[in-house]
């Protein structure tokens, strides 16, 4: 490829990439708020992860891989 072609390809890739990411990003915003409105998810509860962080604190969502071998 010549340097001009590379330069063009790079501008295309840039515009497409930025576009795709922007779309995904906005979809993510909508997803976050809609899933909460529908009551499917409660994102705000994860804020508590910083507050209840003792080893014996209640676990919000157990890691399924560890349910059998590690019990409090």
């Amino acid at each position: 490829m010549t340097s001009v072609e590379i330069e063009q390809l790079r501008v295309y890739l840039y515009v497409i990439g930025a576009g795709v990411v922007t779309v995904i990003f906005y979809y993510y915003i909508i997803y976050l708020y809609r899933s909460e409105k529908k009551g499917e998810k409660d994102y705000e509860k994860y804020g508590k992860l910083a507050l209840d962080d003792e080893l014996d604190s209640e676990i919000l969502e157990k890691n399924p891989k560890l349910e059998n071998d590690k019990k409090e």
Binding site: V21, F25, Y46, L51
Partner: peptide, 28 residues
């Protein structure tokens, strides 16, 4: 700051969703 400020003040992050959005925004 996402850990120490909430923990020290006893207040959960104001908006967890905003923190997620800021994360991806910053990364890109």
């Amino acid at each position: 700051i996402y850990y120490y400020l909430p923990k020290e003040s006893g207040q959960a992050v104001y908006s967890y969703k905003l923190s997620l959005l800021s994360f991806w925004g910053l990364m890109f």
